[in-house]
């Protein structure tokens, strides 16, 4: 399916009236590394969003944390972090979990600025996250609110799915428990440090370390290229 998506995307003409950041993004995506790029040379952006809730259509992004992984190294210098000002952001349970008080959020940046900077940071890297489809949908929703006619079209890897695949649990998928593939459970199982969870950045960092571990496992399973990884 990946090739089909790419094809359709390429047929899409770049919107000449789109803001500069989006035109840059669309252009960079055309130079996306080919599917046969070795994993050791690929660039990944591992990210996580904290949101007001779980419905991408109505809920909003409160913060984004992201870090790059390149050359099989987690690059602490290349991190992205922002709090997003959301007017009238409903105070939900989620806000309690993440400890983001409305006051803190006021110190954040406007959604427009946040999404521009984030898309600029991401470029054409492979997007990685725990249940990454949700976070991508949340970002797409931000784009939509900013009047962008388009969505993120990066390749993406869901660390939970990848773990299931590498552990060869597909066959007995009916016995899988979602709790076994939560970020906490995966970090514990793979002996990874889990300090400072439940901030977007903290989760992104933990997920990046998890990605290193999974990439090493993938290599043992004969998965050598980006194309094989995102499948």
């Amino acid at each position: 399916m990946e090739w089909l998506k790419e094809l359709i995307h390429q047929l899409h003409p770049v919107d000449k009236n789109a803001p500069a950041f989006w035109r840059r993004y669309s252009a960079s995506l055309k130079e996306q590394a080919p599917g046969n790029t070795p994993l050791a040379e690929a660039e990944f952006v591992v990210f996580d969003t904290e949101t007001t809730g779980l419905d991408p259509r109505t809920d909003k992004v409160l913060s984004i944390g992201a870090i790059k992984v390149r050359g099989l190294q987690v690059l602490v210098p290349e991190t992205f972090e922002c709090l997003v000002q959301q007017e009238g952001a409903p105070s939900t349970k989620s806000a309690e979990v993440h400890g983001l008080l409305s006051k803190e959020l006021e110190s954040g940046i406007a959604e427009q600025e946040a999404v521009e900077e984030f898309v600029g940071f991401v470029g054409n890297a492979v997007l990685v996250g725990q249940h990454v489809a949700f976070d991508i949908a949340m970002v797409n929703q931000m784009l939509k609110r900013q009047g962008i006619k388009g969505k993120l079209h990066n390749r993406s890897v869901d660390t939970a799915h990848l773990a299931i695949r590498l552990e060869r649990r597909h066959a007995d998928s009916h016995t899988l428990k979602t709790s076994e593939y939560s970020l906490d459970a995966l970090c514990e199982r793979y002996n990874l440090p889990t300090d400072d969870r439940h901030t977007a950045s903290g989760d992104a960092f933990a997920t990046a370390l998890l990605l290193l571990k999974l990439l090493s496992l993938a290599k043992k399973r004969g998965i050598m290229t980006v194309g094989e990884l995102v499948r």
């Binding site: 987690v74 602490v76 210098p77 571990k213």
Partner: peptide, 11 residues
């Protein structure tokens, strides 16, 4: 200095 760190995983 901490901002310059890279993290490596070794098997």
């Amino acid at each position: 200095l901490a901002r310059q760190v890279r993290v490596l995983y070794l098997e």
